[in-house]
Amino acid sequence: MYSPADMLEIPFADWVDDFVRGFLVPTFRPVFRAMQEPVDFLMQNLDAFLNAVPWLIFAAVLGLIAWRTAGRGMAIFTVLALAFIDMIGLWSETMTTLSMIITAVVFCIVLGVPLGIAAARSDKFLSILRPILDIMQTIPSFVYLVPIVMLFGVGTVPGVIATIIFALPPIIRLTNLGIRNVRGDLIEAAKAFGSTPRQILWEVQLPLALRTIMAGLNQTLMLALSMVVIAALIGAGGLGLTVNTGLGRLAVGTATAGGVGIVLLAIILDRITQGLGEAKKRTDESKSVKGTVSRLLKPIFGGSRSTEPAE
């Protein structure tokens, strides 16, 4: 049987090795180190803080947030879920995971919203950005781990960085979309009164795009949660680690407990961020798919919902 490898074997893996180890890492190590710094800083502090906060206070605060954004039913669910997590002995892991998620999402917002704004302002920039985002979203999440490990090493911070990269595209896309969808006549009206581009952005575009941006934030958050287990493969701690060790030892109970913790956290964060988006949209609730899903889930997760804006 003929095979192309008989003719020529390409040492592709070696080339990549040479390139990354021989050039990229030594040359840019300081850069990558520097990139790690702020993530590390936020992550460490959040983790320490969340682990230091007593359960009662944490549950009260998150319950209150859930109540204001997603209604009374969700608040009760939140408190019960947090109690359950504590009772199954995963409180500390959950707080670590939560601080990873928050860190990742904060950086996604800090990077994603400005990129989205830039993309909305320049067709050229969007045409460069779009294929990159497409690639980012088609690469399986495992594949991210290889270059991340090479460039950043192993541990929680590289795990968070992988999460950031994986979860970034939706917020960029939806920020861009939200701003581009602002009615043209409103932009004209703003211009007619002498607004600068910055004033147009803050007075008109961002407020009107907020709902769409919030939807992007929600998606980003969900993607970040889905990276929790995978990031544990490169040494990140938290619930992902619990699941992984459980799987490694074939300890079904431990793995399931970790999994349940992640699911509970996901539900709480999802409903709160959705609630944030909906609080802003005042009247027309039924337009988005999200809205439909949330209304389908409502009977399961919560009873009445307050429609008061969260101000």
Binding site: E188, A189, F193, V204
Partner: peptide, 10 residues
Amino acid sequence: SMVFQHFALF
């Protein structure tokens, strides 16, 4: 300043 045909209120 301008008053628009289709109002264009925010």
